[in-house]
Write a protein that binds this DNA or RNA. Structure first.
Length: 593
RNA sequence: GGCCACGUAGCUCAGCUGAAUAGAGCACUGGAUUUCGGCUCCAGCGGUCGUAGGUUUGAAUCCUACCGUGGUCACCA
């Protein structure tokens, strides 16, 4: 049983015996550094049940605990705070239970409904950029955290593969492409298709300018530009199933998917299942028809279908256009239902989508509830803030978009520069070195993004993101590598288990053990709050405590053999915990760096 | 304008399901190595927790108003 749970029972018993009152709960907090003790009971909330002076009450409870609970070895009361000192044997026993658990902190799979986590969900007309990077890192990490908390998880995305955007790229490629392919140009497929999207925009603008010269006003010119009309015609042909257009669409989307896969692989994320808008919007239309019958939706005179959400404090929302074609909402309804059909064990879903779509998801979840799906109550919009650059917002038109592939490469390059200066890798092969630079560069990037609360905006300062000191990924990786170095040099018997009597704890060791004890709870909290930031910040605190110990005591040069054994084992366990924590953030740890 | 989110040290962020003197990192200043990896550690400097009210024994945390920033209010996605 956890320390806090044990103490809670005893505090309740104490209050029962001393004051003949029943407490519903007991409030604990870690004892602040400036006071003596390991864990603190806050007396104030008890005053509602037990009348009296908080200091006196604290003293009485403290005395009771000291007399009746063996692991309580002392106490003191400051104001309304009862600081309890815990016997070292508790921490040593705790350590012995976890020291060989390679999966420490992770809960075993609970017999519970699975969760589907959607992330990435790109359009197929341009490459991934920094904004997608945050999305992908968050979604992947939340998936891993949910798994670590004991849930079955499916990772997925919805690919926006149909619509005018891809037709624009297709048309431009037809006109200006001269049959170029990723193979013939050596370009990644998503980059190639993205280039033609830009080409389209250029041609479009030229045509608008020409029409304006010919006397049209700008608004009309934007609507009448021939190339735009042609793109719209192409979309109609696609919807009509024109064989040639569909073949081109399949070819160019295929290029994009290959490009995306390369980027996902470079980032180190994966998916269990892909959904395509082109395959789910029809199901959405079916359910709109059904909702119309059951009265969830209503039809306007022009034939468009709406959902009235005014009773819920929202507006009316369109779910089908007057011409009968699907809107965004239609296909999201279809996609959600399709997913539950495909995976009947799924009881809830997490949508990783930027906060500009907060309203959309509020409405989507409400509509699914109205349609009567019981899983609709377990839908969560993992809403995250924009990524800004020091120069302001990213704007594709102004060319300030940070490309995902470029970014990953730059991070690795920077890691290489810094590592070379410090040079500890002379005996590494070139391939191993490259792999390591990628690990460090990606570690820096991922940690920089994940340590911030998802809902907050991120200011992405390239200079700061590649910082290696302080609260950064490489700092934590460095500590891990340093621990591995100790383990390589130590030659202790791994299987020794020291009893509490054989170990006397250094203050820093006790701090570290308390910190280690928190890890499983951190994972659970991060899961329920969908926040990798909690894991990131925890890991940093753990690492700081380890470095402090490292600086204060000699591990391999400990005076006594038992001390050395204990410290090496402790170091190993800290290393394992760093590794586990980082694994749910999607960050690798190096043996050396 | 309506609705939503955010506002904590010069900068980047924790703390936000209420509790002790609001914590880290960067930057700046000063220290530590006959020692296991100095990408380290220790200390100092730095705060009207956006503003004003309210609830409470107790508010950065909860409530209200206002200010600032961003988002959103499409038969776009």
């Amino acid at each position: 049983m956890k320390l806090q749970d044990t103490l809670e029972l005893h505090v309740k018993a104490a209050v029962k015996e001393l004051f003949r009152s029943d407490l519903e709960s007991v409030e604990f907090q870690a004892t602040r550094k400036e006071f003596t003790g390991d864990i603190t009971v806050v007396v104030f909330p008890m005053l509602r049940v037990v009348k009296g002076n908080p200091v006196v009450i604290g003293e009485q409870i403290g005395q009771y605990l000291q007399d009746n609970v063996t692991l309580v070895k002392g106490f003191n009361v400051v104001k309304g705070f009862l600081n309890i000192e815990i016997d070292d044997s508790y921490y040593v026993d705790f350590f012995n239970t976890i020291k060989n658990q390679s999966n420490y902190g992770f809960a075993s799979l609970k017999d519970d409904k699975a969760v589907m986590v959607e992330y990435s969900s790109p359009n197929t007309n341009k490459p991934l950029h920094l904004g997608h990077v945050r999305n992908v890192l968050l979604g992947y990490s939340v998936s891993e955290i949910l798994k670590a908390s004991g849930k079955k998880v499916y990772k997925t995305q919805i690919i926006n593969d149909r619509g005018i955007h891809i037709c624009k790229s297709m048309l431009a490629w037809q006109r200006f492409g001269n049959g170029e392919t990723p193979e013939s140009t050596g370009l990644k497929g998503d980059k190639l298709v993205g280039n033609y999207y830009v080409e389209f925009d250029k041609a479009y603008k030229t045509e608008i300018a020409e029409l304006v010269v010919q006397g049209q006003n700008e608004e009309d010119a934007k609507k009448n530009a021939p190339i735009l009309l042609e793109a719209q015609e192409m979309l109609r042909q696609w919807e009509a199933g024109d064989a040639e257009v569909v073949a081109l669409w399949e070819k160019m989307n295929g290029w994009v998917y290959e490009g995306f896969e390369e980027t996902y692989k470079a980032i180190g994320v994966d998916f269990d299942k892909y959904y395509y808008e082109s395959q789910t919007y029809l199901l959405g239309k079916e359910f709109v028809a059904e909702g119309l019958k059951s009265g969830v939706f209503f039809k306007k005179e022009d034939g468009s279908v709406w959902c009235d959400l005014t009773e819920d404090g929202l507006d009316e929302k369109i779910v089908l256009r007057a011409d009968g074609t699907a809107v965004y909402m239609t296909q999201d309804i279809g996609t959600a239902i399709q997913r539950i059909k495909d995976y009947p064990d799924v009881g809830g879903m997490v949508y990783t989508v930027g906060n500009e779509q907060d309203y959309h998801f509020k409405v989507l979840f409400l509509i699914l509830k109205k349609l009567g799906f019981d899983w609709a109550k377990n839908l969560y919009h993992l809403s995250y803030g924009m990524v800004d650059l020091p120069s302001g917002k990213m704007k594709s038109r102004e060319g300030t978009v940070v490309d995902a592939d470029d970014l990953i490469q730059e991070m690795a390059d920077t890691a290489e520069e810094i590592s070379k200066e410090l040079g500890k890798l002379d005996d590494y092969s070139e391939a191993d070195k490259k792999e390591l630079y990628k690990t460090i560069g990606l570690g820096a990037l991922k940690y920089y993004i994940l340590k911030v609360d998802p809902k907050k905006r991120i200011l992405f300062d390239p200079k700061e993101s590649i910082d290696f000191q302080g609260n950064t990924g490489p700092f934590i990786q460095y500590t891990y590598a340093r621990i591995q170095s100790i383990l390589r040099k130590s030659n202790i018997d791994e299987n020794i288990t020291l009893s509490a009597a054989e170990v006397s704890l250094h203050d820093k060791e006790r701090e570290l053990l308390k910190q280690l004890e928190q890890f499983p709870e951190v994972i659970q909290n991060a899961a329920s709050q969908h926040s990798p930031a909690l894991v990131a910040n925890y890991t940093y605190d753990l690492v700081k405590d380890f470095n402090s110990l490292y600086q204060n005591v000699s591990i391999l040069g400990a005076d006594k053999e038992e001390e050395k054994v204990f410290r090496v084992q402790l170091s190993k366990t800290v290393g394992q915990t760093i590794k586990n924590a980082f694994s749910v953030l999607g960050i690798e740890v190096p043996e050396r760096m």
